[in-house]
Design a protein around this nucleic acid. Sequence first.
DNA 1: GTGGTCTAGACCACC
DNA 2: GTGGTCTAGACCACC
Lengths: 125, 125, 125, 125
Amino acid sequence: MQLNFNSPKPIYLQMVDETKKALVRGELAPGDKIPSLKERAQMSNVNPNTVQRAYQEMEREGLTETLRGQGTFIKNDPALLLHIRSEMAQTAVLHFIEEMRGLGIEAQEIERILRDQLSKEKKEG
Amino acid sequence: MQLNFNSPKPIYLQMVDETKKALVRGELAPGDKIPSLKERAQMSNVNPNTVQRAYQEMEREGLTETLRGQGTFIKNDPALLLHIRSEMAQTAVLHFIEEMRGLGIEAQEIERILRDQLSKEKKEG
Amino acid sequence: MQLNFNSPKPIYLQMVDETKKALVRGELAPGDKIPSLKERAQMSNVNPNTVQRAYQEMEREGLTETLRGQGTFIKNDPALLLHIRSEMAQTAVLHFIEEMRGLGIEAQEIERILRDQLSKEKKEG
Amino acid sequence: MQLNFNSPKPIYLQMVDETKKALVRGELAPGDKIPSLKERAQMSNVNPNTVQRAYQEMEREGLTETLRGQGTFIKNDPALLLHIRSEMAQTAVLHFIEEMRGLGIEAQEIERILRDQLSKEKKEG
DNA sequence: GTGGTCTAGACCACC
DNA sequence: GTGGTCTAGACCACC
């Protein structure tokens, strides 16, 4: 859960994204309780109201549900994980292609650039 | 030159990026005069102060130079275009890979997802 | 006895209303014993403190009476049922009219909208 | 714009409803600018953050749109007014019928009670 | 302890 | 001046 306090992207949205990623990576599972507002606020060194805004957004998106006085839980919906995974991957790939096209770079070269970078990282990593 | 006024990315940085992309795509060439603050402000429906900040940033990055009383010009440096192109493509591909890894998706599947999307767009487009 | 835990209306008041409705519908009768705090708390999946507050409120409104060691009973007052029925119906109709007037909808159209909805439900139901 | 500070219904939701009603009653029109956060906060004797939450909710529901630095406007969508009017009237009538059914009161008597109240108000008013 | 609402007030980008 | 984000901290209903 690394937050970038200098990013123009609001912290509460970064928190939503990080929660989705944790779910997709299997670090969270449907039905899991997520930390309370105050716990998360302390962990992330952020104001509880900011956490609340993130949790509110997640609830609005159908990612979590809240049980009064008990806390907030990842929705226990088996399709949720796959849905979020494909949604986020789709967003990322579309954004990438759009960026490259904005540079006048087309399909073949886009693929090549990705392949080059991946194999470069493999050698180095 | 499409600006997204709801993006958290500051408008002036969006303007810098759009100028870079126009250059890379060949819509602008080294040595070209770019619009005056006021022209650009009207074209983009943006406050002249915002344009000024974009122009300052471009100057700071070595992308443009201003000739007193004559206006602002894309720097007449033959290497500039290639440099910006590879810099922006590099940024995009690194960002994309990082996003996908954040979802627990690794090299092979990243390539597959990109390939799928590109061929899907080819069919549809 | 359906409680809405996301309603802004306090749970204990929802419980009072539900008890009144059960009485008016004849599911409870004057003189009937109502469940103990603990029973009701378990049935409704609610904290006993919340039930207690509901029971206090019902006592305060003259709806119930408690006999030491024997439990809580719907008051054995023949007029009670009719009184509550007309009071709740009155509250509902006044609230409805006020809502509709707030939308600039006047008597004739209010009646029409109600009639339409009732006949629609009749056909469907 | 009368707010009830003692209602359990959150103030920000009351503000959303009041704005919808003003629109339906014709006191606001599509395209109109609504008061700025600070103006509205002063007018309503409420904290600007509370107003902002109301405005945010209206934006989320597609009722308004925000132009950076210029303010918040009722969306200029001709269908909006009728849509909200019928949505709110529908909600009210369904709620009313449900309340009455909860009291064991059925169609004919529901209609009669409404008619009686309306003609009573006519005589008195 | 748990989330929900609200106040008070700061700082920011943009007009 | 305009809305957007964030902090700090209060009070509430419910557990």
